[in-house]
Simulated assay, not measured.
Amino acid sequence: MANRRQHPLSVFTETNYLHAFANPGYITHLFWAQWQTVPLPEPGFFADQTIIVTGANVGLGLEAVRHFARLGATRVIVACRSVEKAEAAVANVRQSLTPEQDAACKFEAWDVDLGSFASVAAFGRRAAAELDRLDAVVENAGIAAGDYTPLEGYESSITVNVLSTFYMGLLLLPLLRRTATQYNVRPRLTFISSDAHFFARFAEQYEPSIFDALKDPSTMSHDRYNVSKLLEILAVRELAGILDKNNVPVTVNTVNPGLCRTQLFRSLPFGIRHLVHGVLYTVGRTASMGARTLVSAAAAGPETHGQYLDTTEVWPVSTYVTSEAGNKAQRRVWAEMLDILDAVHPDISKNIE
């Protein structure tokens, strides 16, 4: 991991797209990052390791599975919304491997729908029952919703990108901890965030309940995806501090894969979707190159614990995140989310003790 450097975006005090694209620092960072060749860990780095990748049927998730297999992973859980999609992903990856790589990696097609708390719970139970170890989890599944759709009582991007994502992480934490103890390793739990968090207006922070405010269809805007990514970063920072306090030897981090040519924005309104895709196909990374950032984060050391990674390096988060207001919001977000998840799964909070 290279030395920490000043991120051009850290100078922002106003968080909206107009100011971002008018600021030369953002453009400099964008073009610098997008054309970097993202390094991968050494071949064989993931030998003997078991890895879970969610949202693994397309885009970054699919390519991450391919990279993990080529880098020697022993067992890869390919997690998608249906077994059929997961099986198709496995077939796609296997066709691209050498016979030796294919023989060395055991792929398993599992289903999990992050729009359903029950599905996430079932996935967690299966992992606890069937996996003897778990070395890395890449929580890649996510959405960028254009319209308000309720899932489990919350707007879909909040349910999928935040609540279910952290529910899965908490469910898998006991297995990660057991792996650390039994195999004398430090497992990694990686959340896929975005530099979109720099642009979150996050008006909901001023409401009595942040997550209740995010339920309101009348507040649905193009800021919702940005807010979901900001909430991920706040929650990871709080979780990392709790794990440190409790001496839990698991690294949690977030990673920004950059602008990538994937299907993430397929649910946006027609005009905006085509504008975004035009930008992506002009400056976007390929899915294979973007997936390298996920793999690097899943291989990263304890120096990345609680940190935000960009192009494999630890970068500063937005100035809001580290401000007094951001610290206050961080504690509120974590407490509210834990209350929600404890109601779904009583005593889930004990998994971090």
Rank of each mutant, 00 (worst) to 15 (best):
L97A: 08
L280V: 10
Q263A: 15
A33R: 13
T13N: 08
E130R: 05
Q330L: 05
G271C: 09
K328H: 07
R332N: 04
I352H: 06
V250H: 11
L172K: 06
T312I: 13
T319D: 15
L280N: 04
A129D: 11
D342L: 01
D113P: 05
S119L: 07
A122F: 02
S164K: 07
M337C: 02
P24H: 01
E152P: 13
L234W: 01
S221L: 06
A91F: 00
L230P: 13
E238R: 13
L239S: 02
E42L: 12
R178S: 15
G124S: 07
F46L: 05
S10G: 06
L259Y: 13
H197L: 12
T74W: 12
V120E: 05
D111N: 12
E130G: 02
L60F: 10
T98C: 00
N226Q: 07
D223H: 00
V333A: 09
G284E: 13
E204L: 02
E313V: 01
P24C: 09
T149Q: 11
I143V: 15
G301Q: 08
R5I: 05
R4S: 10
N246S: 03
L175A: 03
F117C: 09
A213M: 01
Q34W: 07
P99F: 10
A88C: 02
V317K: 12
Y167E: 13
V295Q: 03
L40C: 01
I210D: 04
H7A: 10
E204I: 03
N23F: 09
A180M: 10
P208W: 07
L175V: 02
N247R: 15
V317R: 11
D342S: 13
A104V: 01
N351S: 05
A203W: 04
D342P: 11
P302A: 09
S228F: 08
L18Q: 12
E324I: 04
G44V: 09
L60A: 12
A329H: 09
E313S: 13
V236K: 00
P249W: 12
V317T: 15
E14D: 11
